[in-house]
């Protein structure tokens, strides 16, 4: 549970935008927010779908087939649609105690450390992206699905595709944050 501010949503914390030059291309930021918006719509859709299933099962004795499968796929999609924006808005959990202290005492060292940590984030997301390329190609070409033919089936490629897009965008956002900190370190006049 990253940021606890739930009463003032949509306010990016100061930590996400230090430095002088603005590396955040506004267009990219808006793209990430659009992805996250899609994820939010998906949550709403999941809520409606489950409620419809509950109603149909109890009132009409006719459950909606495939709800289990769709929710399972939906959870993965929601996470990867939301991931880049959550990073951008500083909502992924981390312990900031040490680095905050360092920032007060030695801002330049803190900026360099932060750049390194963001580079690690870039590296990890890049691995997810690169290693998901081949599963995506397979699921696309072979028409992979989950479920049972004759009962309910749902293709898996849209979700694997979302993992691909989400990991790529998160990697890019990490790269932007790392460059931003690097830039900040270069313009910070020595350690106080």
């Amino acid at each position: 549970m990253a940021s606890p501010t739930m009463t003032e949503p949509l306010t990016p914390p100061a930590a996400a935008t230090p430095g002088r030059r603005r590396w955040h291309a506004p267009v990219f930021g808006r793209l990430l927010d659009a992805l996250s918006g899609l994820g939010s719509l998906l949550i709403a859709a999941m809520m409606l779908l489950v409620c419809a299933d509950v109603a149909a099962r109890n009132l009409l004795s006719r459950p909606i087939t495939g709800v289990t499968e769709l929710v399972a796929l939906g959870v993965v999609a929601v996470v990867f649609l939301q991931l880049p924006a959550a990073l951008r808005h500083g909502r992924l959990s981390r312990a900031e105690i040490f680095i905050d202290g360092l920032r007060r005492r030695r801002p330049r060292a803190a900026a360099l450390l932060q750049a390194l940590l963001h580079a690690c984030g870039f590296f990890f997301c890049a691995i997810v992206f690169a290693a998901t390329l081949s599963p995506f190609a397979k699921s696309w070409t072979s028409g992979d699905f989950i479920g049972v033919e004759g009962v309910f089936t749902a293709p898996t490629w849209p979700v694997v595709g979302i993992v691909l897009v989400g990991s790529a965008c998160t990697a890019l956002q990490f790269a932007l944050l790392a460059l931003l900190e690097w830039d900040g370190a270069a313009t910070t006049g020595g350690d106080a």
Partner: peptide
């Protein structure tokens, strides 16, 4: 039994 797509 759950791999209908890959083992039709």
């Amino acid at each position: 039994a759950t791999e209908g797509a890959k083992l039709p």
